[in-house]
Each structure stands twice: as C-alpha cells, then as structure tokens.
C-alpha cells in the first residue's frame, strides 16, 4: 500500500515510495537518514520534531507526506551553507544554549523562522515564537540570548 511521493527537502527533490500513513517525521529519519529531526512524543505535544515548511514552523510528527508535495521542507541539516553554520547555530554553541541538544534542532529552526520575518525581535516576541518548543535543560534563557545575539550580528 505504498504511494509515490515527491518531496523537496533542504532544496533537494526526492522521490519516495512510502506508506501514505508514514509521517514526515518517520520519512525524514528512516527513509532519508535525516536524523537531526528528533521526536519526543509524536503527538504534537512537545514540538521536538519541528521542521520548517515554506519557512514556517511545522510539526513533522503530525504531517503526512502527500500533503507536503510541492512545499519546501527545511530540516536542521539544511541550515548550514556547506560547512558554514547558520549564525543561530554559532550563537547557540557559543552561549551554551544547547545542553542535551535534543530540542535544539527544532528550537533553532523555529528561531530562524522568527528572524526571517522579524530580524530584531523583542524578548517577548522571542518567548512567544518559541513557546511551542519544550526544553527541559536550559530554562530557555540562554536560548533567548542566543537568538538575540544572532539578531544583533545580523546588523
């Protein structure tokens, strides 16, 4: 009962034959080897599995592949330009904003979506934008600071 699906992930078109009920999370991790996308509940209750779809934060655990045909999927692996990390990846590393690192891919992608629309967000705007991604390690403060530092370096 597999179906052919054409997905565009990190700028690359791929054709897959997958069960239509296999979530995008499972496809990214198990069929495309993109294990940078993590998962914490698979029910939309933690957002650890966050990706970007057309630049907007999405949950891969609730998305089904046929619905994302024709859309641009970005995962954490798609953030660096070649071996040059995205500014958010640098500031997250510098400020210790990744402790265990498990929510980090989703947190960084969500922050990127924010900075793409609001290059110099207030602390309150950052808190609102990241309110959907749970982190148990950091207390979020280093994460806020890392987003602010990346924004300030953007000029």
């Amino acid at each position: 009962m597999k179906v052919a699906v054409r997905l565009r992930v990190n700028g690359q078109d791929t054709e897959l034959l997958v069960p239509p009920y296999k979530t995008v999370l499972e496809i990214l991790r198990e069929d495309l080897g993109l294990t940078g996308t993590k998962h914490g509940c698979e029910l939309g209750e933690c957002s650890t599995c966050g990706i970007l779809v057309d630049g907007k934060p999405f949950l891969s655990c609730l998305a089904l592949p046929l619905d994302l045909e024709g859309h641009e999927i970005t995962t954490i692996e798609g953030l660096a330009e070649g071996s040059r990390p995205h500014p958010l990846q640098v500031t997250f590393a510098e400020l210790g904003a990744a402790q265990c690192g498990y929510c980090t891919p989703s947190m960084i992608l969500t922050a990127k979506a924010l900075l793409d629309t609001d290059p110099h967000p207030s602390r309150a705007a950052i808190q609102q934008a990241l309110a959907g991604v749970l982190c148990r390690c950091t207390g979020y403060l280093k994460i806020f600071e890392a987003v602010e530092l990346a924004a300030s370096r953007h000029g």
């Binding site: 069960p19 009920y21 979530t23 499972e26 998962h39 698979e42 029910l43 089904l64 619905d67």
Partner: peptide, 12 residues
C-alpha cells in the same frame, strides 16, 4: 515511535 495505523489517504 507512535505510528499511525495503516490507512488509505485520498487527496481530492
């Protein structure tokens, strides 16, 4: 991983 049960998916 919690998975969906097998099902058909139609996209009218």
């Amino acid at each position: 991983m919690l998975r969906l049960p097998p099902l058909r998916y139609l996209r009218p």
